[in-house]
Simulated assay, not measured.
Amino acid sequence: MMFSFAVKKYHPTRALTLVYEPFAIVTMVVLTYNESKVNTRKRNLVGFILFFASTLSLLLLDLGTAGKGGIGPFLGICAIVACFGVADAHIEGGMIGDLSFMYPEFIQSYVAGMAAAGALTSVLRLLTKAIFEKSHDGLRKGVMLFLAICTFFEFLCIFLYAYFFPKLPIVKYFRSKAASEGSKTVLADLAAGGIRTKPDQIVL
Rank of each mutant, 00 (worst) to 15 (best):
A89G: 07
Y20T: 08
M102V: 04
F106A: 15
C78F: 08
G76W: 02
P169K: 13
Y33F: 06
S100A: 11
G64K: 02
F155N: 06
D189V: 12
F164K: 15
A115F: 07
A15G: 13
G47F: 03
K42I: 03
S36N: 09
P199V: 00
V143S: 04
G182W: 00
R140T: 07
L156H: 13
M1T: 07
G193F: 07
I77F: 05
A89M: 00
L126D: 13
S100P: 12
P166I: 07
I170Q: 15
K134A: 11
T128P: 10
G113H: 02
A112C: 12
R140W: 01
A179Y: 15
A87E: 07
G72Y: 07
K8Y: 00
D98P: 05
F152H: 09
A15P: 10
K68V: 03
A87Q: 01
F101R: 14
K8D: 09
G67M: 04
V81T: 01
Y161D: 13
E21G: 08
F164C: 13
A192D: 15
A87N: 02
F132V: 01
T151F: 00
A115D: 12
L45S: 10
E105V: 09
F164G: 10
G138Q: 03
Y103E: 14
P199L: 03
V26Y: 01
